[in-house]
Design a protein around this nucleic acid. Sequence first.
DNA 1: TATGAATGAGAGTTCATTCAT
DNA 2: CATGAATGAACTCTCATTCAT
Lengths: 202, 202, 202, 202
Amino acid sequence: MSEGRDRILKAAEDLFGTHGFDRISVRDIADRAEVNKALIFYHFNSKDELFETVLLNYFESHTEALRESWDATGTLRERVHRMIDAYVDFIVNHRSWPKLVQHVAATEHGEHIPTVQRGLAPMIEWAVQTFGEIAPNEGPTSVRNLFETVAGSVLHHFTYASVLAPMWNGEPLNEAHIAERRAHLHWLVDIMLDAVESGAHL
Amino acid sequence: MSEGRDRILKAAEDLFGTHGFDRISVRDIADRAEVNKALIFYHFNSKDELFETVLLNYFESHTEALRESWDATGTLRERVHRMIDAYVDFIVNHRSWPKLVQHVAATEHGEHIPTVQRGLAPMIEWAVQTFGEIAPNEGPTSVRNLFETVAGSVLHHFTYASVLAPMWNGEPLNEAHIAERRAHLHWLVDIMLDAVESGAHL
Amino acid sequence: MSEGRDRILKAAEDLFGTHGFDRISVRDIADRAEVNKALIFYHFNSKDELFETVLLNYFESHTEALRESWDATGTLRERVHRMIDAYVDFIVNHRSWPKLVQHVAATEHGEHIPTVQRGLAPMIEWAVQTFGEIAPNEGPTSVRNLFETVAGSVLHHFTYASVLAPMWNGEPLNEAHIAERRAHLHWLVDIMLDAVESGAHL
Amino acid sequence: MSEGRDRILKAAEDLFGTHGFDRISVRDIADRAEVNKALIFYHFNSKDELFETVLLNYFESHTEALRESWDATGTLRERVHRMIDAYVDFIVNHRSWPKLVQHVAATEHGEHIPTVQRGLAPMIEWAVQTFGEIAPNEGPTSVRNLFETVAGSVLHHFTYASVLAPMWNGEPLNEAHIAERRAHLHWLVDIMLDAVESGAHL
DNA sequence: TATGAATGAGAGTTCATTCAT
DNA sequence: CATGAATGAACTCTCATTCAT
C-alpha cells in the first residue's frame, strides 16, 4: 500500500541477504531505501520485526514457488525430480534466501528460529508424505535422513560458494556450473531412490 | 608462555563458535576470559585478528584430526568410509567449527575468506586425489560434485540442527541421532561409489 | 534552526581555541554544550569535521571583519594603518583564532592545511595588491617579506603571550599593553613604508 | 651514558618536534627508538618528564648556539646583526624547536610554561641589555616591543611555513628562500635601529 | 505518512602507566 | 638496564530507538 514501506522491505531483503542481520544497520537500510531512518520504526517497530517480516515474505515466495511441486501428481520419482528443479530455480531467483535461513540457524538468533521452523513446515510435510511412501521413520534411510541429504546437497553449493569458488574456476554460480550441479542432484536423487526401493540398505 | 593469551583464545573460540563473530563483543570475550579488555588488543591487535587466529587454530586441529585419514591406505571405499567417520568425529568434538566456517562463507566477511580457503585446501586436495581415481573433472558425477554432496550432507545436520530439531524429536545432536545420521552417510557414500563405478550415470 | 548544533559549535570554538584540537575530547565539548555526545556526530560526522566547521566559521568572521579594510580607499599608508587596527581588533575579539590557525600550521594536521590556506587567501591577496604598489615580488623587501613581518609581529604577541608574560608585568593582554603593542605596530609599518618608498634597501 | 636513553631522546625530539606532544604516543617513540615501551618510563618516569627533558636539551643547544652572540663585542648594530644570523642558523639546524616552544605557548600546556620561560630567560636578558642601550622600557619603541617584533618576524616564517607555502612557490624552507628571508631580517633590523636612534618615533 | 533532532548504551581501540622478572 | 604482560581510563564513533512536529 505504502510506497515507503515497500522500498524499505526491498532494501532490507537485499542487504540482510547479502551481509547478514548483524552487519547491516538500520541506517544502511534507510540509505539504500532512500527513506528517513525513523520511518523504518514507524512501519516495523524494530529492526528485529523488520527482519521477521523479510523472513515471512521470503517464506511466502518460497511456498508459492514450490506449491505447484507440492501438489504435483505422477510417480514418486517424477515428483521428486520436479521438486529438485523447482527448489534450485527458487534459490537461483532468491539468492539471499539460503543465507538468511542459515544465519538464523547458525547464530541461534533465538527469536527467529520458530519463524523459520514454521516457514519450513510445508516443505517438511511434503518430504514426510512423499518419502514416507517408501522410507521408514527411523534408521539410515529414514525420511529425515533422505530429506537432510537432499536439502544439504542443494543448499551447500550456494551457501559455501564463496569459499569453494576455487573448485569451480572462481565462478560457482555461473549458468554452466549451476547446470552441472543440477544434473548431479538429479543423478543423486535417482541413485538414492533406486537404493531405497531395492532395499539396498539392508 | 602467556596464560592470558590462552584464556582469551579459549573464550573467543567458545563464544565466536556459539554466537558468531558479530554477536560477540570484545568485552564479552574479556569477561569470559576474566582478563582486561585491553589485553586482547595487546595480544591480537584487533578483533578481526583474534578471529583469524581462532580460525587458524581450528584448521590446525582440523588438519591434525584428519591427517590420519588423509594418509590412510586400503581400497578407495575403505578410505572414504574412514574419512566420513573421522570428519563426523571431528565435528562432534568441535561443534563450533561448522558455524565458524559457515559464518565466513555466509557474511562474505571478506578478509577471512582466503584463510578458510587455505584451511580447507588439504581436505579438497584429498578429495580430488581420492575421488579422482574414479570420477571425472566435470559433469554430473565430477569430483567437485561428489565432494560437495558429501560435505553438504555431513555439515547440514550440524548447521541446521536448531531449525530441524522437530524432525529429530527436538534432539538432533544426541548420541543416538548422530549415530543414525552417521549410518546414513555411510550408506550414501556406498551407493554413490557403486553408481560411479558402474557408470550408472550414463 | 537547530539549537543543539549552535551550542556544540560555540562550545567547540571555545575549547579548541583555548586548549587545541588534541587536548579537547568530544566528551568535553558535549559536556560544555550540555548535549549528548552522539549529537555531535549526528550534526558533524566526526571530530575532524567539527573542527573544520569551526575553522570555516572563524574565517567567515575574519573575512567579514576585515572586508571593510580590504575595500578601503585612501593613500597606501592610510589603508595599511587601517588594516593593522582592524586586524588587532579582530584578534582581540577572537582570541582563539591565532591559536587555531597556528595549531594547524604547527602540527601539520594535514587535512586542515588547505582550509587554512583558503581562509587566508583574501588576506594575502589584499597584501599582494596593496604592497605590490611599492614593493617587488622578490628580494629582501618583497611583498611576501613585508607581509610576513607584519603578520608575525601582530600574531606573535598573542600566541606567545603566556611565555612572554614576564616582560609585560604578567599581563600581556590587558588593555594598556595591547594599546602599547598597537602603537608599536603603527610605528613599525611607518618606518617600513618609509624605507621601501625611499629605496633605503639599496 | 646509556645507549637506550639517548635513542629515546633522539626519537622523542624528532617526533614531538614534527607532530607535537599530543599527537605522539609513548609507543610511537619506543617504536622509533627501537626500545621497549617500559624503558621510557624507567628512564624518564612519565611522558611529561620526557617532554620536559627534550625541552631542556633544546634550550641547552639554544644557549650554546647563541652564547657567542650574547658575549659578542662591537657596535650595537653589529651585535644585533650577528644575533639575527645566529638565531636563523640555530632554527635551520633545529627545525622542530619553534614548534616545540609554540606548542607549549599555544596549548597552555601548564606544566611546561615555566620551563620555557626559564629557557628563554638568557635570550630576553640579552635583548634587555642590548636594546636597553637605546630604547625605553615602555612605549611604542620599548625594548619588549623591539624584541617581540624581531622574534616574531624570525619565527613566523618557520612556524607558518606550511600554510604560507603558496607565497613561496611551495618551498618556503629551501635555501634560496631562507636566504631571502634572512636578508629581509637584516634590512628590518637596520631600519628599526635607524628609527630608534634618530628618535623617529616622536 | 514522514522527518530532523536527540539520546543511552555500547562498540572497537588506544592511552600512559605499572610491575614482576 | 631491559622487557613482556597487564590494566583502568579515556578515546572516537555507531547503534537501535524515541519523540515532537
